[in-house]
Lab assay of single mutants.
Amino acid sequence: MPGGGPEMDDYMETLKDEEDALWENVECNRHMLSRYINPAKLTPYLRQCKVIDEQDEDEVLNAPMLPSKINRAGRLLDILHTKGQRGYVVFLESLEFYYPELYKLVTGKEPTRRFSTIVVEEGHEGLTHFLMNEVIKLQQQMKAKDLQRCELLARLRQLEDEKKQMTLTRVELLTFQERYYKMKEERDSYNDELVKVKDDNYNLAMRYAQLSEEKNMAVMRSRDLQLEIDQLKHRLNKMEEECKLERNQSLKLKNDIENRPKKEQVLELERENEMLKTKNQELQSIIQAGKRSLPDSDKAILDILEHDRKEALEDRQELVNRIYNLQEEARQAEELRDKYLEEKEDLELKCSTLGKDCEMYKHRMNTVMLQLEEVERERDQAFHSRDEAQTQYSQCLIEKDKYRKQIRELEEKNDEMRIEMVRREACIVNLESKLRRLSKDSNNLDQSLPRNLPVTIISQDFGDASPRTNGQEADDSSTSEESPEDSKYFLPYHPPQRRMNLKGIQLQRAKS
């Protein structure tokens, strides 16, 4: 015994090295194993092979420090690593049964499904019991997946119906949107047309105001020219009257000059006056001389005659003075006559000038009245044309509004008919989907599995289990394997941990 101590140590070291070499393959693929292994699927088989106990299973599945599946799978690998070579062998058998691809990844061999460990530990009855539990578990999982698949199909059909409904609603909204954009385009076109009409109206108003201003300026210029013409006519008439007055005065002077006595007659009258003065002096001298030589009687007679002569001279002087006064009065009367005649001529000139001015103003008033009548006639014609244009424009607008209203009513009726057609199509689609759903539900009910399987069917299934373990590994792997896509769409199922009653199965096998 003492001599065998070193050999035992060498043997233990060799086993430990082999164990480390075995687990080295697992550690190399630890990331892939932790990512894809579900500990809840492996722990029943590991407990059946007595590699882990209930406490280890509870620690792996329910520990609060292991929230994710990767953490739980890593903890399970750590626990199996502590179990040595047996933990490695049982772990590979569980991978061979549940995850053939991972088994091939770790060992590089094809899975054979021999279950040597569980046969050694529990015997064939334990293997049968384990396989029966796994089959029931798989059936329950398949039923749950079928239910989930039916629910998802129903949800899918519902979503398809909602999608069709949303599509129809979208078509309806597109119809309304198209109608909205069309009405918006019509409104924009009408606004552009309105702005264009306003611009045209403004341009016409500006043109009309400009023409009116030009016409008023032309009328004012015409009036100024007419006033200048009238003033020139007035000056012409005044000059004609002055010329006529000057002509009359010149004719009067000419007549006075023609009626003036001649120079010879004046000289002859002056000679006669001198001769008479000479004779008068001679007679006076004779009379003076006679007075001195005459007697007293003759002197008395001469005195009487002288007195008579003096009286006659006085009378004559009075007559001469009277004649002079009369001549002066006649001259003054002639001057007054000439003055009055001049005033008369001036008044006649003024009267004729005023008459011509009156005629001029009368003509001017007639011209202004004619212009006013023409302006009123043009204004009435413009008003009439404007009223006709406004009436025609309003009539066109009324007809346009009428046609637009008819078009809008027809478009609304068309839209309502399209919407009604879309709604009826939606109703038809809904009815078809309901009919299809009812038909599929009836087919699913016919094809669904019963909840409680008979014992004979279970025994028959387990009677055929042994050949399947040898020759149909691919079928078992397809039913027991969970793909990543299934984990996305289906909830994980945790079967209840219970042991099955095998009395009925044993009785059935005894009868057979």
Rank of each mutant, 00 (worst) to 15 (best):
A40S: 02
T43W: 04
S94V: 10
D56F: 06
D17V: 12
V90R: 15
E101R: 00
G5I: 11
F130Y: 14
L22C: 06
P67Y: 13
H129G: 10
Q85A: 00
Y11T: 12
V106L: 03
R113P: 03
P64Q: 03
P6Y: 11
H124F: 08
R75P: 00
G84M: 01
R47G: 08
M65H: 09
D20L: 11
E121T: 07
A40T: 06
L127G: 12
F130P: 01
G126A: 10
Q48K: 08
M142I: 14
L33C: 03
I136Y: 02
R114P: 14
Y88W: 03
S68L: 11
Q140T: 08
L138W: 05
K83G: 07
R113L: 03
D78K: 00
K83M: 05
I118S: 10
R30P: 04
L22W: 07
A144I: 13
I118K: 12
K16L: 13
L76E: 04
D78L: 03
D53V: 06
N71K: 04
D17C: 09
K143T: 10
R72Y: 05
N62S: 11
Y45Q: 09
L92M: 08
F115L: 14
D146M: 11
N133P: 04
E24R: 05
E54Q: 10
D10F: 13
H31S: 08
S68V: 05
Q141K: 12
G108D: 00
D58Y: 15
E27A: 02
E96K: 11
M65Y: 04
T112S: 12
D9S: 13
V51D: 04
Y45I: 08
S116W: 06
G5V: 12
D53K: 06
E18F: 13
L138R: 13
E19T: 11
K143M: 11
E125K: 04
Q140S: 12
D9C: 12
N29H: 07
M65A: 05
Q140K: 12
C49Y: 15
D146V: 07
R86I: 09
A40Y: 06
D56H: 07
L66P: 04
Y45N: 07
M142A: 12
H129S: 13
L131Y: 00
Y45K: 09
E54A: 09
Y11P: 15
P64A: 13
M65P: 03
K50Y: 12
Q48A: 09
G4D: 11
R86M: 13
Y11S: 09
Y88G: 10
S116D: 10
E18W: 12
D10T: 10
Y88I: 03
Q55W: 11
P39A: 04
E18S: 12
T14V: 11
Q55V: 10
M12N: 05
T43H: 09
L127K: 12
E24L: 00
V90W: 04
N25I: 04
C28T: 12
T82W: 02
A63Y: 08
K104I: 00
L15D: 12
S68Q: 05
L33K: 01
E110Y: 07
K50V: 08
N71I: 09
N38L: 01
D146F: 08
Q48D: 10
E125V: 13
G5W: 11
K16R: 09
L61T: 03
D10Y: 11
D78V: 05
P39M: 01
L138I: 12
Q48C: 10
A144T: 11
L131I: 01
P6T: 14
S116Y: 06
F130W: 14
G84N: 04
L105M: 00
R35D: 06
G123R: 15
N29V: 05
A144P: 09
I70R: 07
H81T: 08
K109R: 13
E122C: 05
P6R: 12
G87I: 02
V51T: 09
G87L: 01
Y88F: 06
L105S: 00
L138A: 06
W23V: 00
L76A: 04
E27H: 03
Q55T: 13
G123A: 15
P111C: 04
R30M: 00
W23A: 00
A144V: 09
D9R: 11
S34E: 01
V119A: 14
K104V: 00
R75V: 04
D146T: 12
N71L: 08
I52E: 08
L80W: 04
K16I: 14
V51R: 06
L138G: 12
L33F: 05
D146Y: 05
K104T: 01
I37E: 02
V90F: 15
K50G: 13
L66R: 04
A73H: 02
E7D: 10
M132D: 07
Q55L: 09
L138P: 08
P64N: 06
D20K: 09
I70S: 05
G74D: 06
S68M: 09
G84T: 04
H124K: 13
D58R: 02
L66Q: 04
K109N: 00
K145E: 07
E27T: 02
M132H: 05
E110F: 09
T43V: 13
M32L: 04
Y45P: 06
A73Y: 02
P67E: 02
F91G: 02
V60K: 00
I79T: 02
L92I: 08
Q140N: 11
V51A: 10
E101I: 00
K50A: 12
E93L: 03
D56M: 05
P67M: 08
S116R: 05
M32C: 04
Q85M: 08
I79L: 05
G74C: 05
G108S: 00
D17E: 10
L33E: 01
G108N: 09
Q55H: 10
D78M: 01
N62A: 14
L33Q: 03
E101A: 04
V51H: 11
E19F: 12
E121G: 14
D20T: 07
S94M: 05
D10P: 14
P44I: 06
L76Y: 04
T43D: 06
V51G: 07
S116G: 14
M12F: 14
H31A: 10
N133L: 14
I136K: 07
R30W: 03
E93K: 14
T82P: 04
L76M: 14
E121H: 07
F130V: 15
I37S: 01
Q85G: 10
L131F: 06
P6V: 12
P6D: 13
G126S: 13
C28F: 00
R114I: 14
L66A: 05
K16S: 08
D56K: 05
P67K: 08
Y98C: 05
L138S: 14
F97Y: 00
G123I: 15
L80I: 06
Q85N: 03
K137L: 10
L102Q: 13
Q140M: 09
R47L: 07
L42C: 04
G108P: 00
E110M: 02
T128G: 08
I70H: 07
Y88M: 01
D17G: 10
H129E: 07
K143L: 06
